[in-house]
Design a protein around this nucleic acid. Sequence first.
DNA 1: TAGATTGTTAATCGATTAACAATC
DNA 2: TAGATTGTTAATCGATTAACAATC
Lengths: 208, 208
Amino acid sequence: MEEKFIPDIVVGRLPVYLRALQQMARDGRTVTSSQELGERLGISAAQIRKDLSQFGEFGKQGTGYQIDYLVEQLRDILNVKQVWEVAVVGAGDIGNALARYQGFANRGFVVKMILDNNPELIGTAVGDFVVEDSASLVEKIRSAGIKVAMLAVPADQAQEVADKLIEANVGAILNYAPISLNVPNSIQVQYIDPVIHLQRMTYYLEQA
Amino acid sequence: MEEKFIPDIVVGRLPVYLRALQQMARDGRTVTSSQELGERLGISAAQIRKDLSQFGEFGKQGTGYQIDYLVEQLRDILNVKQVWEVAVVGAGDIGNALARYQGFANRGFVVKMILDNNPELIGTAVGDFVVEDSASLVEKIRSAGIKVAMLAVPADQAQEVADKLIEANVGAILNYAPISLNVPNSIQVQYIDPVIHLQRMTYYLEQA
DNA sequence: TAGATTGTTAATCGATTAACAATC
DNA sequence: TAGATTGTTAATCGATTAACAATC
């Protein structure tokens, strides 16, 4: 199997294309063009065509792209034709919101368990789940074969939990704790910290 | 006042530097170097020095950077020496988590109000707030002088609420709805959609 | 002083865009 | 056919890195 190197910045745009295309499909659209998609996303048409061309030829000259077909191609490329089971670690407000989030449906992910180390929370219900004890996190996640985790514990516990997730054979961590994690290169990490995004915007705002 | 152009990609890294430096300060550290900070963040030392040098000379040869001083400089650059009042629109699980989030403290933001259009939620308590009716969103946000909003409504309502926020003179929107917004260039928008991050990671994972 | 580390320059590397032949 | 739009090439643009004089 030949493995062509794809820049990570290109990979990062594919989910955005996919989301917009699925939206178009829901709106009853069947065909689109790089120009239309680009206008919608604030990205140049050339960049979209270049990005897609890294993976194959998905369009037709003169016509554009069949939305359903391109959606399936992108789902295949991003490995989200399968549904990934996800563990949520931390049953505070963020963990709660993630365990109950309806937005994972049909996008490749399903929450499978939620864990916490707080005795007051263990055993309580969160959405369709019962909070499990994170003391046995490694065994539970490993034996369930879960490869994706969302980390929603306090910052001062995030690194140690991340270490346990890696021990449990998790390959991807979405970290909501406001701290940079130290992980091996083989582990995928993404960060969500609202303050980082807010500060990036206030740079451009006039001071009050 | 001279305005030097700073690439947005540089601006985007500054909050990450700031977060790590504040962490170091909390750990009792007083001095650091571009090398140490870079190792911590997985960024090259040269890049950190280059980024900082866009704004001034904050270090000392042979010594490095005084953490407290650099923190204050970055807070100044990012306009977070002032505290920005934030409106949360949408009182579902995500809005709830945002209204109650402790992580805004000392990082430049304070939630001031939470709004929703659901009669069942209006008037109920969320953290220290009472959910307000978003029917009068424009007047409430404008008269409060709020410039920053977090958008946590369903995707199919996000664009219309965004339009109202802009009408209310908001300059920055952090959008949790899984949809690309159409806004004027003068409005800052950032996106948080966990699925986008998850799909970016599954690209690199072995299929089950 | 000797060692360490900055700020900056120049070189390298990578990403984006413009343009167009191919073709539906 | 005429018009539209792709996939791709080459040119441009921008970001990162390596290296080092300056200096604490």
